[in-house]
């Protein structure tokens, strides 16, 4: 049958429907990015781009990033705009659904973490902790298309 979008991270194969995450994000992208005045710092793409991550480390980085967004980011993104909050809830619940699947892979040792992914993720956390928590969360949410572009 027509497959769900199957993401291959080495031995870890995960079916994800990115279409809804993308459309929810596209609906609030301009609003969220306008709340982030800091042009000179990126959480995900500088100094090291996600595109430089070796394929063997992609699963681990993806697992770390989905945990990062679910555990740290979404809860600090509440806005005064009910429509934006509902879209954030939609993205957060979709991320939670994917995070669960990545956790399965991790438990089955199909999502191994190498040195590079540990370094990369440490850099992302350092970028994140370099800002106050609300600014960091809003900036991370505004960079979701960087994550989605890299994943797809």
């Amino acid at each position: 049958t027509a497959g769900n979008k199957i993401f291959h991270f080495g031995p870890c194969r995960i079916s994800m429907s990115m279409t809804e995450i993308r459309s929810s994000f596209t609906a609030i992208k301009a609003n969220i990015q306008a709340r982030d005045p800091i042009r000179t710092l990126s959480i995900l793409s500088h100094p090291h781009s996600l595109h430089k991550v070796k394929s063997s480390d992609r699963c681990c980085i993806t697992h770390h990033l989905f945990n990062f967004y679910v555990d740290k980011v979404f809860k600090h993104c509440k806005t005064e705009d009910s429509y934006v909050n509902r879209k954030i809830s939609s993205i957060a619940n979709s991320f939670l659904s994917v995070k669960r699947k990545l956790e399965q892979c991790h438990k089955q040792n199909k999502c191994m973490c190498g040195q590079e992914s540990a370094e990369k993720f440490k850099q992302i956390l350092a970028n994140y902790e370099g800002l106050n928590v609300i600014a960091a969360a809003i900036k991370s949410l505004g960079e979701l298309d960087i994550l989605l572009n890299w994943m797809e």
Partner: peptide, 19 residues
């Protein structure tokens, strides 16, 4: 109002109104 699994487990069981 609605509450997803994320709200239950990560956002203090918050509820979101449907305007």
């Amino acid at each position: 109002e609605f509450q997803g699994e994320y709200e239950r487990e990560y956002a203090n069981e918050s509820w979101i109104p449907i305007c």
